[in-house]
Write a protein that binds this DNA or RNA. Structure first.
Lengths: 201, 201
DNA sequence: CCAGCCTGCTACTTGGCAGTAGTCTTTCAA
DNA sequence: TTGAAAGACTACTGCCAAGTAGCAGGCTGG
């Protein structure tokens, strides 16, 4: 119970930090700003995070982990390579859009992370690329995909989805799920497969 | 001649600023750092740029203009929509990779730009999206492209190419031109057109 | 050879913000 | 009811970097 309250406070700090870092940037936001928004003072934050930089890492890392999980789960799942790629892209897109602010902050503020935190995250990103490339190779081997250069294709796919953090508006024309589906369809087309008409959700 | 020297000095400052902002980030770089690298002192920079923020804008804006030009020229050029799209994507990719550091700095440090500079750049970006969407619509009208949602497709294409600034290594496996060609091929596939086998350079 | 201007430098000021030392208050247990 | 401990606040420190005022030295035109 005590633990839970501690975790809750931590979570609230992170929420507010995400909002402000997203809106004004990491260096454009002071810890006093975050504290004020929460109705507390700066030392309060320091009882939960060692430094501003640690706060940054704490709001990037889990989101990158979620991205990796999305790809890993889909890649290891059921179905043909095309079905698995569709699932992987749609689920990854969902993480990107649901954690839009966290993703944006990570890509913008990478240079402000500590070397250790960045190294850990980069390990995750390498795994992400390897999994995606492998999935593409599986599809090529199965005769489902036509790809000139698997590595470039993996980077292009990853980029196409990641980029959505820059343009998606939650209150916009398309619902989040529709955007994910559309992007996954485009992804399949890119690798020379026809999108499954009635696949997944 | 006096003008030319002034322009040259300005250019050198920009070069060094790009290098350092790219490596250490905007706030992680001091004007003293840039001056030191050039073998001059901080007031020297202030005779050529009003402020650090103006320096940032001066190194972002022209690059965004080049991106827009690449798309605009290709879109208005000769050939079928598929040929023009191929050209547009390849040329845009070339700008992204040749000005990799400038592009990276712009996307990372957007929040540090002045409101005016950002507004100007955003106007350019809107034009970019409109041109690309229009080109896609032309292709659909001509029966060359199959696209479920033109706007999402335009954003996906733009993102796939833009993203290359995050992963391209000039000294890597593929030459810059090859990367551009590969990406343009993937782009055409994404919109349901077959890449021209022997198109452009 | 000299006057004055242009260019860049030395040597500041200033403000802002991360991080901290030490106090006060509130809560809970005995 | 009291004592102790946890948790949060007030009120700092110290540093760092943007931006500036005013000087010096060399080039140019007379």
């Amino acid at each position: 119970m005590r633990e839970e309250i501690l975790a809750y406070k931590r979570e609230r700090i992170l929420q507010e930090a995400v909002t402000l870092f997203y809106k004004r940037g990491f260096t454009g936001t002071t810890l006093d700003d975050i504290a004020a928004e929460l109705g507390v003072t700066k030392p309060f934050i320091y009882t939960h995070f060692r430094s501003k930089v640690e706060l940054l890492a704490a709001l990037c890392q889990p989101t990158i982990e979620m991205s990796l999980d999305a790809i890993a789960t889909a890649a290891a799942g059921e179905g043909t390579p095309a079905q698995r790629l569709f699932r992987a892209m749609a689920d990854f897109a969902q993480v990107v859009l649901q954690r839009q602010a966290n993703i944006a902050i990570f890509f913008r503020e990478e240079k402000n992370l500590s070397d250790e935190a960045l190294a850990e995250i980069n390990t995750l990103r390498k795994k992400f690329d390897r999994l995606l490339s492998q999935l593409l190779r599986d599809g090529v081997a199965a005769g489902e995909f036509q790809i000139a250069d698997v590595n470039v294709a993996a980077l292009a796919l990853g980029g196409m989805i990641s980029w959505a953090y820059t343009w998606h508006r939650p209150e916009g024309r398309l619902a989040l799920e529709d955007v994910c589906t559309r992007l996954a369809e485009l992804a399949l087309r890119m690798v020379g497969a026809t999108p499954p008409v009635s696949a997944s959700v």
